[in-house]
Design a protein around this nucleic acid. Structure first.
Lengths: 126, 126
DNA sequence: CGGTATCCATCCCGATACTG
DNA sequence: CAGTATCGGGATGGATACCG
């Protein structure tokens, strides 16, 4: 049982989270409140129906969320995290929280790194 | 400052973490012990030199790790997390820990989901 | 409303070979 | 040892159109 091994099943969980929208879905639903499809799509700025569906299906398959269909007209579909999903969601949220708190330092590091990359040689300037 | 917005800079951090090998690098270095290039490559089963280099450069650029070159023969290069890197590394590790603890339940959910997908109709079985 | 179907760009990643 | 160079494939994600 070692995440670092190529075929360790735990890697599948990391691969799932690595999806472009997965973390945002988990955070959006982390408070336990169910959300409808269109509501999620509006919240996740830039996501398309197709990709959102793929993301939700993948999370449902891993047992992290449930999909409830109410056969009304118009149809109503709600998504909510399972207990496992809320656990992972909380952990992911701590990462997004960190990002928001430290984004300035990250951006500063980025600019300094990019600046250094341009120097042909440090002593050549006047 | 909203991660859900398409152009929010905090999204860059999520995109970084979404890299296939990023989380594993962070976990490998999370205890603060520096590691050499070859040591990391051995630890991350399946990674190639090129991709490992890309991953490390990206993390360095965001200010999450430092690269130290000792001009000896043969060359010695050490990577270690910065304070910010250790912070994120700790959060990421909590996710890998969760994966290891819950992988059985995840696999069970996966099999049940895949099973259900095959039923043409639930009542047709003998 | 809540999706699918189809097509397509892209880009990440991997294999291989080579260098200081 | 610690990379870089080059090439290429395959999956992921996006745009558009359409359906129950």
């Amino acid at each position: 049982m070692d995440v670092f091994l190529r075929d360790c099943p735990t890697r599948a969980v990391l691969d799932l989270i690595a999806g472009k929208w997965t973390m945002l879905v988990l955070v959006a639903l982390e408070d336990g409140r169910p959300m409808r499809f269109a509501e999620l799509r509006r919240r996740l700025d830039g996501v398309t129906s197709k990709v959102l569906t793929q993301t939700l299906r993948a999370l449902e398959r891993e047992g992290l969320l449930t999909r409830s269909v109410y056969p009304t007209v118009p149809p109503r579909v709600e998504y909510r995290l399972t207990r496992m999903g809320r656990e992972v969601g909380g952990l992911v949220q701590s990462i997004t929280d960190w990002s928001q708190a430290n984004i300035a330092a990250v951006q500063a590091a980025r600019e300094e790194f990019d600046g250094r990359s341009q120097h042909p040689s440090p002593g050549s300037a006047s």
